[in-house]
Design a binder for these strands. Structure first.
Lengths: 188, 188, 188, 188
DNA sequence: TATGAATGAGCCTTCATTCAT
DNA sequence: AATGAATGAAGGCTCATTCAT
């Protein structure tokens, strides 16, 4: 079954809702209210529910661009000659993409069983595969602290994101925290 | 003026409410609702509000034991001969206490301006002082990665707590993550 | 922009709420509770709040007809040839409209700063202007006891309404009290 | 049955409650809350309820002094040589006492059937008798507008009180409004 | 398909009153 | 007699979701 292309007006509404939700998410934190988004988008609640039957579906749609970009960066990390540089690229991308889009953090911090769309599950699987590649290479070269599972790394990055969001002046702390993480997971 | 000891029945209710809240917090996450706690404790809503006028007051009361214990451990870390061991003791205590009591994480992850009681503000100040002592000693011995502020450390530990809570089998991951953090913040 | 006409069902609910509120107000005094009105109207609370976001908005809507009618009568009073008859018409209308609709008394007895709608503020302003016209004409002809401000008159009528509502058999006392007032404010 | 004299401490508490209630009434309007009064008086709620089992009982106790003083003035009015002066004295006293003590207005604006104490009922009866005397004398001398019942006068004064309380700068309006009333009720 | 009115469960909070201490 | 903790009905309001138009 192929998803039928949206009618022009339906597509416009969908984009409008996403743009509005993104703005609200950035400005007011992760308490998305479909009602509120619909009103601000100048669209009926019913329309909002048609496009995004659950809050989760909306969050996934919001995160989709960031997730796609992240996959591209993960592929690049995988291709890089130097194994450790690959790890650094991967984690850096994972960190920055989440900082730039809180919706992505919500997706990555929760289980795949909560995914509303197959698309997100697919992204998740692909990312897992790519990350495994990057990390296995590093492990093969004894660059990674022994005992760290792939999931551990992903969780730790989420943790760093959380740590960064606690205080102010986030931007100037990003590299500091990233270096701590990288040094911490490195062998030796 | 000394706070008068509670009447026996009042003390019983207070404890009942705290125990209930602790159980709910552990089982269902940080969405404490005073009404709900009161109902589950088999106590009138009014009683809950008398003891804890706001959600924050309840969380602080919940966290109080853990916070007190943490202070004791921080003092111990401060007294330890070896500066680096002191740091490890401090961060380990900070990590374990939060894992054991989610209320403590809420207190530590939010601003002091939200504190409802002076007692909590006092704890916070004392912890800050103790931590500064521990960390300054380590800095004086060039044991700590340059550029890390005291707050950074506290935030990073909160981040590790967050990371640990994302997945399952939390206990077996604790030491792994803690080692990553310690290695990451160590100089050299 | 014209206020769009309500959908048929919305209009029905609005009218239902107003009718219910009017009945309750007449029967049980000025303690309007939105929750209660909604329940009695057989309508969800949310519906009540959608139509009347505050108690004040409801009271203003209730008083609207009476206020509009009062404005008509005030215009008529203003146009009447005889200045004193104009005064009598004005005060009589002010008195009778309040007796017929307690909501109007609430509006007139409280400050314009509490108005929820511009419409009510507009009514209030227009009434003030009309009343000033009527009273100025009477003052110019030395028919009004010196020293009485426009506001005094309005307050005194509210006072007479209050006096009438204290006891029973209201109707037969109206003219008596009105005559007392008219004689009292007349010069000489 | 004679009311037993209060123990000294009980009398002290009673006075304390009354003084507090009077202050609150003056400062914050007629929404007396027994709980609140008790707390402000530094007395247990239970004690407040012992002394004043209902809100009404408290209001009556509050009004008692004013009511007693009013009776004295009514007697004086009754004794005055000039019948019309007697009326003026009576109404003036009735007006000023209410302005000075809102509790008195509440008593006078409600039915005798709501009285909690016999004492208040007695006051009410005595006042009625005295007022009847004053007014009958005036009627006998054809000084009073025909058709006005004793109750009408009392209600009208309550209305004037209400009118005075609507706006600001109450004091400077008292005499103006009182003159309106006196002129209005006078024959001719 | 789009709309937005309607719904009502459910949370927060207050306060009059009772009753154990 | 005094105290004040406990109670819980009740009111205010929000918001996720459904459904008539």
């Amino acid at each position: 079954m192929v998803t039928s292309p949206l009618r022009a007006d339906a597509a416009r509404n969908r984009d409008l809702l996403l743009a509005t939700a993104r703005a609200v998410l950035a400005a007011e934190g992760p308490t998305l209210q479909l009602n509120d988004i619909a009103r601000r988008a100048g669209v009926g609640v019913g329309t909002a529910y048609r496009h995004f039957p659950t809050r989760r579906a909306l969050v996934e749609a919001l995160a989709d661009d960031a997730f796609t970009a992240l996959l591209g960066e993960a592929r690049e990390a995988n291709r890089h000659d130097d194994a450790w540089t690959g790890v650094a690229m991967l984690l850096r991308a994972l960190l920055l993409r989440q900082l730039a889009d809180p919706a992505l953090t919500e997706i990555l911090s929760t289980g795949p069983d909560q995914d509303a769309t197959e698309r997100t599950t697919g992204h998740r699987d692909e990312f897992t595969t790519l990350a495994r590649g990057v990390l296995e290479r590093a492990r093969a070269a004894d660059l990674l602290r022994p005992g760290l599972a792939d999931d551990d790394l992903q969780h730790l990055v989420c943790g760093v994101v959380f740590a960064l969001r606690i205080g102010d002046s986030l931007e100037e702390r990003v590299d500091r925290y990233l270096q701590v993480l990288l040094r911490g997971i490195r062998a030796g």
